[in-house]
């Protein structure tokens, strides 16, 4: 009898559930189990756009263009690019490096997981297409600034991914963009209209990428033809893709016309939200609440032929909150 009681007790106790040591997650969203349906795919895509906004908030992406003679910056980090002498410790680009890789990580996560989602093939394609586009775009900006970069397409922690040369990076960019142009819709409706990535945008970016590959550092002139034919697909099919040059160049900077047919890749900031969701004032003068991240080089401005184009290109007067108007010569940097 005693033995029976004991055996009974032991059985009760030891026969407890075998999944006792499985982690039961309720409060956290985990990438292992996320991307399970249409809605979650969309949440992942929204996150990618958010990260792109973060990455471009401080205009660091303009670092790559500072080497030209049109703009310069008050920031040492950007000035280094202006004089073609960026250093490894460059504060501006290291921030951009971190944030653009965050975009890549978010895109990787979606790309690695979208196929298992309980969604239609079209819904999966559209979600993945935006992720491929974002990843290609991110690597494209990276490779142009740094040339040799780590290619990271997984989601596991790895401390020793080496640098890849531009050829490999461009291979990935082209592969991603080709997928994106197949997967993305040509037009969006609803809130995504005029802002989310389209197949036309993918083709346009692909043209830009080919164009870049034709020159330094790959120097492969055969890409000129590829660039031209990709661009022509978009130009010739305005009806389908909806991209055209605006009639009036100045319209591009008019607030009312901010969603327009000339914008291929657009990121929308919202003043109502805090922190990095607000519009970047990077290029605005300090007096305006901006940071003078970049402004026109004075010779470029002076030598620019006068006319409508010049008026549209340079902001020469700033309308302050106080109601006053500030001429560029009155600003701290004295630059338009």
């Amino acid at each position: 009898m005693k033995k029976n009681i004991l055996l009974f007790l032991l059985t009760v106790v030891f026969a407890s559930c075998s999944d006792f040591l499985e982690e039961e997650n309720k409060g956290l969203l985990l990438s292992e189990t996320f991307f399970s349906n249409t809605q979650e795919l969309q949440l992942g895509v929204n996150g990618i756009y958010h990260l792109l906004i973060d990455a471009h908030f401080n205009d660091q992406v303009t670092a790559a263009t500072l080497g030209s003679n049109d703009i310069t910056s008050r920031f040492v980090g950007f000035q280094e690019f202006d004089v073609f002498a960026p250093t490894g410790g460059n504060a501006q680009t290291s921030r951009y490096w971190a944030e653009i890789y965050s975009t890549i990580a978010a895109a990787n996560e979606l790309i690695l997981n979208y196929e298992g989602a309980n969604a239609t093939e079209e819904e999966k394609r559209i979600a993945a297409g935006q992720a491929y586009f974002a990843r290609a775009y991110s690597y494209f900006t990276l490779v142009r600034i740094w040339n040799e970069i780590p290619i990271y397409t997984e989601n596991e922690v790895s401390y020793d991914i080496g640098l890849s040369g531009p050829a490999e990076v461009y291979d990935l960019i082209i592969e991603d963009l080709r997928l994106a142009e197949e997967m993305l819709p040509a037009q969006w409706t609803g809130v995504q209209e005029n802002i989310a990535f389209t197949s036309g945008a993918a083709k346009s970016l692909l043209a830009y990428v080919y164009l870049t590959m034709a020159g330094y550092p790959l120097n492969d002139p055969s890409n000129y033809a590829r660039a031209a034919s990709k661009a022509k697909e978009v130009i010739d099919n305005e009806g389908e893709y909806g991209y055209r040059l605006l009639d009036n160049f100045a319209e591009l900077w008019r607030h009312e016309a901010r969603f327009n047919d000339e914008i291929v890749i657009g990121l929308f900031y919202n003043l109502d939200f805090r922190n990095n969701q607000r519009a970047p004032f990077g290029q605005m003068p300090t007096e305006y609440g901006g940071w003078d991240v970049y402004f026109a080089e004075i010779n470029f401005f002076n030598n620019f032929p006068a006319g409508a184009r010049k008026e549209a290109t340079f902001a020469t007067e700033f309308y302050l909150e106080s109601g006053d108007t500030l001429h560029w010569t009155e600003t701290l940097q004295r630059r338009p």
């Binding site: 969203l29 985990l30 990438s31 992942g44 929204n46 996560e109 596991e156 922690v157 929308f268 919202n270």
Partner: peptide, 28 residues
């Protein structure tokens, strides 16, 4: 040991912030 996602919103062309998520902690 798991990879956790964090909140990342985006408003597209509107004044509404649509919720979104992206990686915050890599799997370990």
């Amino acid at each position: 040991t798991l990879s956790v996602l964090r909140f990342l919103g985006y408003s597209y062309t509107t004044s509404t912030r649509f919720p979104g998520y992206g990686p915050a902690i890599p799997p370990n």
